[in-house]
Design a protein around this nucleic acid. Structure first.
Length: 425
RNA sequence: GGAGAGGUGGCUGAGCGGUCGAAAGCACCCGACUUGAAAUCGGGUGAGGGCAUGCGCCCUCCGGGGGUUCGAAUCCCUCCCUCUCCGCCA
């Protein structure tokens, strides 16, 4: 949520910033609603004050044993007027909140212009693109050769966009999770957390998935509604919802492995082959809650932490800065890490690292007590995948494949696979 | 799922129709005493919002929502959560 004070003071400038995303914010209409709210609120509060004062007088009169009936009738009349005013005010206020909840975050000035994925500038690159003296297979072929990657079985028990892994591949998958958690907890000072995989609507509203993106989520039949977590960002970031953190508690660094569930509605034709885009996948997520002054530095740090995983695994990647047209709803600035997939001969997203500034914090009412002002103020929140496990498995298979279809094990994972250096199938 | 108890400020906890944003204690901050500290004493200390922006005035918030009433932390309905016992169960 954008600071309502900013929204009131300078709606034109906000409209200009959001326009870079292609978002149209009707500043005039907002200003009009805000004007009405303001005068109606003043009037409502006057009436409330009137009612309070007179009701107290009735109490006092009653104690003196006076006749209070005429007084009651009078206040009753005020009450009618008041509830009418309250009803209208309520409507206007929820209208304003509705607008506020659908406004995306303000962009950092350095977010590049652009309309889509193709316009994201590359910031840096790591690792050489592997040269094969044979035509590299894609991960589906490799999985078939090795055995242990079964899309048909998954389709029978669930449907499309699921996979069943078994044997060495299941173990490699688990090893990746373990490896990532170990690095982040022991080298990057993150605390591991375990959280619910079903979350409520309030949590999703806090991080920004709701109310706008309900169609991307799986809703569980339950009253009140539960949703399957689309990312650990939701439960983990919401750990600080409605809290006032003390200065000394910050920064918070948390790492969390969860499954993620996405409906992929609207992506019907996209990445239908293989494990790239699934309804269910595993992710190790990094979340930070920091002092506002430190969040930009924290974004660089967090991105670096995710990069370490790719480097240790020896996977070539590049870092791109998401452009104004491609960046997420809640984010002020996002770096994507893209790993090289030889079979596709292109880089594919494997991590997305964002600074949400105070946007999620306002929605969640997550604050800290700023020692300089003594007041509770919104914290800044960040997160990034560290990394997407399924895509990481895909990248390892494709980058470490041999002509015979066998796959070498990245050095860093060897201890996690019982000393095994080669996946044999 | 059944029976019961409860959800109040950073924490503990009183209040059960009027003067209650709410006693008391703890914690925290300021001051006094002290060479300094501790102890003691005095004072202060919730969040959000509106008007004014000069000290200020006012509104809302006692788990969420709805209702009764001139007036609700207090009464009623409903939902959520916590605890105890029983049942079932990974």
């Amino acid at each position: 949520m954008i600071d309502p004070k900013l929204l009131r003071q300078d709606p034109q400038q906000i409209a200009a910033n959001l326009a870079r995303r292609g978002f149209v914010f009707d500043a005039e209409r907002y200003r009009g609603l805000e004007e009405r709210r303001r005068s109606l609120q003043a009037r409502t509060q006057d009436l409330q004050n009137e009612r309070n004062v007179r009701s107290k007088a009735i109490g006092a009169a009653k104690q003196r044993g006076e006749d209070i009936e005429p007084l009651k009738r009078e206040v009753s009349r005020i009450g009618e007027e008041l509830s009418e005013a309250e009803a209208i005010l309520d409507k206007i206020q929820s209208g304003l909140v509705g607008i506020q909840l659908e406004l995306p975050n303000l962009l950092h000035p350095e977010v590049p212009d652009g309309e889509g994925e193709a316009d994201n500038p590359e910031l840096r690159r790591w690792g050489g693109i592997p040269a094969f003296d044979f035509t590299p297979r894609d991960h589906v072929e490799l999985g078939t050769l090795l055995g242990g990657m079964d899309f048909e079985a998954a389709a029978r028990i669930a449907g499309s966009r699921f996979v069943v892994l078994s044997g060495e591949l299941a173990r490699l998958h688990r090893a990746l999770i373990q490896f990532m958690l170990d690095i982040h907890t022991s080298e990057h000072d993150y605390t591991e957390v375990y959280v619910p995989y079903l979350v409520n609507a309030a949590a999703l509203t806090g991080t920004g998935q709701l109310p706008k993106f309900e169609e991307d989520l799986f809703r569980v039949e339950h009253e009140p509604a539960f949703y399957l977590t689309p990312t650990a960002e939701v439960p983990v970031t919401n750990l600080v919802r409605e809290r006032i953190l003390e200065e000394g508690e910050l920064p918070l660094r948390m790492v969390c492995h969860t499954p993620c569930f996405r409906s992929e509605a609207g992506n019907y034709g996209k990445d239908t082959r293989g494990m790239i885009r699934q309804h269910q996948f595993e992710k190790v997520e990094l979340v930070q809650v920091v002092r506002p002054a430190e969040s930009w530095e924290a974004l660089e740090g967090l991105t670096g932490h995710a990069e370490v995983i790719l480097r240790r695994l020896g996977l070539p990647y590049r870092v791109v800065s998401l452009c104004a047209g491609d960046i997420g709803f809640s984010s002020a600035r996002t770096y994507d890490l893209e790993v090289w997939l030889p079979a596709q001969e292109r880089f594919r997203e494997i991590s997305s690292c964002s600074n949400f500034t105070d946007f999620q914090a306002r929605r969640m009412k997550a604050r800290w007590r700023n020692p300089e002002t003594g007041k509770p103020e919104p914290v800044h929140t960040l997160n990034g995948s560290g990394l997407a496990v399924g895509r990481c498995l895909v990248a390892i298979l494709e980058n470490y494949q041999q002509a015979d279809g066998r796959v070498a094990v990245p050095e860093a994972l060897v201890p996690y696979l019982g000393g095994r250096r080669l996946l044999l199938g």
